[in-house]
Design a protein around this nucleic acid. Sequence first.
DNA 1: CCAAAAGTGTTCCCTCTACACCCATGT
DNA 2: ACATGGGTGTAGAGGGAACACTTTTGG
Lengths: 234, 234
Amino acid sequence: MENLKTQKAYKGQPKILVATDCIVLGFDEGVLKLLVFKRRVDPLAGEWSLIGSFVNEDESITDAARRVLLKFTGLEDIFMEELRTYSDVDRDPGGRCICIAQYALISIADYDRGQVEKHGARWFTFDELPNLVLDHNDMVAEALKKVREKARHRPIGFELLPEKFTIPQLQKLYEAIYQRLLDDRNFRKKLLSFGLLIKLDEKDRSGSKKGAFYYRFDHEKYAKLEKSGFDFEI
Amino acid sequence: MENLKTQKAYKGQPKILVATDCIVLGFDEGVLKLLVFKRRVDPLAGEWSLIGSFVNEDESITDAARRVLLKFTGLEDIFMEELRTYSDVDRDPGGRCICIAQYALISIADYDRGQVEKHGARWFTFDELPNLVLDHNDMVAEALKKVREKARHRPIGFELLPEKFTIPQLQKLYEAIYQRLLDDRNFRKKLLSFGLLIKLDEKDRSGSKKGAFYYRFDHEKYAKLEKSGFDFEI
DNA sequence: CCAAAAGTGTTCCCTCTACACCCATGT
DNA sequence: ACATGGGTGTAGAGGGAACACTTTTGG
């Protein structure tokens, strides 16, 4: 840390409460789901809310979001990206507070059910999603829009699937994200053409008698390609 | 405002200094330029810095950024978008402070030279750009990356040109953004094919004897198209 | 043997790219 | 008349979209 002189430089400037809220998306039973919980602090205690927290003085926004996600899902190393800052002066009746919203994509198979229940959290599909507190509905809508846009150019879909997945699963995921049906032949062709899916010997027989081969995404190869300007366009 | 009960709800939570910095880009003499100024507060007073300010308790981040831009350029209604939040605990030796960076695109013909000079600000090309304080170099690099990506799908280029512009001017702008030469026939064809450029009767004769027709961008028509999912792809 | 999902190829069309010459005008 | 930048058309290649049938196997 620096010295007293520099500490004084910013003395008297207006400090503000800073929070972060997470739009946590998962993919389960062929549909996208959102993790929300019952807010415990007043005002609006008992209402449905995104999971979030105030940001402490000794942590970055990312640190705070990771702390929240760990607490509510038991998961670490989750894909997470900043959405935007919500800073309207009157956005929170509890007091002036800006919020940096982040969206997180998780493989719904992996989360810790115990943690979720312990904190009064629940997964909702978007059909049955209740009204959320404050500007959280806006955050969710914007996050969905951003995920849709982003999925067209970056392979973020794989974050929502387990390590091993089948092509039909992947297609259903993209259909859920884009909200429209895709041609199965063209989809498979396109995805395989990138050379980024590694076919495994194992089959998933839960979806059909014939069984579908498992694949995994080649993150290492993609990382290299991305540096040289590769666009994962779907 | 609400009542004392709710004010108390967040009592004791950690307040933090919040700032916003603006990556102000302009296009002049065929190259992109960045507006920076000599920082006046300690620590690091006298060093080159992005223009910015602390966020007051009674204003949103956008309000703060608009205030800064007005002060330094004399301009209002500027295109501006959030880049991201910089929140590393040690990013500022002056004290814990998070910063929401925003990039702004302005028509360099329009700004108020008096305002710029009065505040010790200057336009730099990226070739001659000096080192900036704190993490401002990162912010600039990320803003450029974002502008490049965004320009491929949204008509943000027009924000950097005057209301009236010629096709060759527009092409030079895109060449400056993408850092590569474009084919003039294909470029013209593509741009005109959208039906979003309105040809004026007037010519700009500053660049050649023959003169190039002025056009303006049809913002209204684009707004409608965008709602129905139109992608302005260049 | 049948139902149910997995897997496979081809044709057409449209868009992107590459490329070279005439036009208008001020000096 | 000439130099300078503005403006136009076309042919070939490649990628996206549309489309139907065979394969596998548990029950």
